[in-house]
Design a binder for these strands. Structure first.
Length: 112
RNA sequence: GUAGCUCUAAAGGCGACCGCUGAUUUUAUCAGAGGAAAGUCCGGGCAGCAUAGAACACAGUAGUCGCUAACGGCGACCGCACGAAAGUGUAGGGAAAGUACCACAGAAACAAGACUACCUCUUUGAGGCAAAGGUGAAAAGAGUGAGGUAAGAGCUCACAGCGUCUUAUGGUGACAUAGGACGGAGGCAAACCCUACUGGCUGCAAGGAGUACUGUAUACCCCUGUUCGGGGAUGUACGUUUACCGCUAGAGCUCUAGAGCAAUUUAGAGACUAGAUAGAUGGUUGCCCCUCGUUUUGAGGACAGAACCCGGCUUAUUUAGAGCUAUUUAA
């Protein structure tokens, strides 16, 4: 789990990123990102009720993604806001190293 | 053993590494989801609305006695229904206050009476009868035997049974048992309605205090409707945004003893800080345990995530144990 400082969720921030950010799509994720003026990077993970019905299952997906991000974080200093949108419920059961690899490649794509 | 019924308990265990939220003696230690945290269906605490008042309207509840802070909850008991039994279910007041409805079928559905059948006569018809047949969820409460008649019929009698009223006995009571009198044409009140009882409204996004901004009116405003009664007022009322308080030790839990059939309650002792805020309580992994499969490898371990706090109800769901009933000697 990331520190509270590096997560964000306020209505304004999320909505601003949705409106002005760039989007990268893959079968399991979308990544929306936009520069911010805070001087550090922030992340949000969104899991829709359409993906998983119960709160327990959504929490598990959210925590795994946050954990993968936490392990990737030392390699980056992007000074941007990022939103990960989850489309596929396999993330709850898939191999953790594979999940980490997918998130790594997504972040790499966004650097280009 | 098999089939069934009831009750109770647990919610895999111990570690490693890396994290998150909170607290503190601040860089290290401690604490950190459930039996349903869920649905938000009831009831309260708490908060505000005037000092929280009255009547009507409206809504809810509906066997009795008890328990409780309270309840539409719980316990015990009564009646009825289901079951072979253990047991289970039950909104279970009022239909001679009034209104509405009773499809299809059927002769006929609450208003008269009669389709088939039976009997009589002056026989293309008229009259008598309401037992039998058939329809339907429902067709006057009425079975057996005897008398009776043109044919019949509770028309009459005996026995059995039903309903209403009433007397006695038992019970706090619902009611039960026994006796007496009378039998008058349905059902439906989770249809309107009547009766009794209960309920002021809004909910922690309540509300408090504060910051910044905006705008309106001296009319009105004061938490649903109508009426009555009452209160407020110059910075009063309304709206938007952000951090803080509210925010967790409690009508709570465990044990022992007493009261009670029980729900529950009295006394004593003991243990215990989840309080986050788009929302922490996790991720990865090792060994053991259980289930499936198997030479091994392996797969799986339910339902499900606190959001002011309690008491219930309902729904989801894995496993284990105990007691009881029936069947029988089949394993």
């Amino acid at each position: 789990m990331l520190q509270k400082k590096f997560r964000f969720h306020s209505r304004g921030g999320v909505r601003y990123t949705y409106a002005h950010g760039k989007t990268i799509r893959t079968p399991k994720f979308s990544l929306i990102y936009n520069d911010n003026s805070r001087g550090f990077q922030r992340f949000a993970v969104v899991v829709s009720k359409k993906v998983e019905k119960t709160a327990v299952a959504r929490n598990r997906i959210r925590r795994r993604v946050y954990e993968a991000l936490r392990l990737e974080l030392p390699n980056y200093d992007l000074k941007r806001d990022h939103i990960f949108i989850v489309y596929n419920k396999d993330i709850a059961t898939m191999d953790f190293s594979e999940l980490r690899e997918q998130i790594h490649s997504l972040l790499e794509q966004s650097m280009v």
